[in-house]
């Protein structure tokens, strides 16, 4: 078992859901929609159809030169979100 606070994000990769943690990456059995229902909205936010991120794993947001919303993670990796999800992310931080 991986402690909850070590989870960075969940995302789909080749039809499987994987969980990235500070201790390594694991394949999980649940589907993305199941995870969305189970995970606390106070801790995790959806950034696309295929990805849920821990709020505490977000270092900053930036806009790429071509105009994509980029999320820089504390782990040094980065991922993308879209205009549609930016609104939801904003609301998640306002709660």
């Amino acid at each position: 078992m991986v402690p909850f606070y070590r989870i960075i994000r969940f995302y789909t990769q080749d039809k499987h859901v994987v969980c990235e943690t500070t201790a390594g990456t694991y394949r999980v059995r649940q589907r993305m929609y199941e995870l969305r229902m189970q995970l606390s909205e106070a801790t995790f936010i959806s950034v696309s159809n295929a990805e849920v991120i821990s709020k505490s794993a977000i270092e900053s947001f930036s806009l790429t030169g071509s105009g994509s919303y980029q999320i820089n993670l504390t782990s040094g990796a980065s991922t993308y979100t879209s205009r549609r999800y930016v609104k939801q992310i904003k609301e998640a931080f306002l709660k």
Binding site: K55, I58, S60, F61, S62, L63, G67, Y69, R83, V86, I89, K90, F93, L94
Partner: peptide, 20 residues
Amino acid sequence: SSMQIAKAKVRRLNQLLNNN
């Protein structure tokens, strides 16, 4: 204009993140 609006949104997101 779309780029400026998006930049403003990113600034707002970072602000919310820092407050949080």
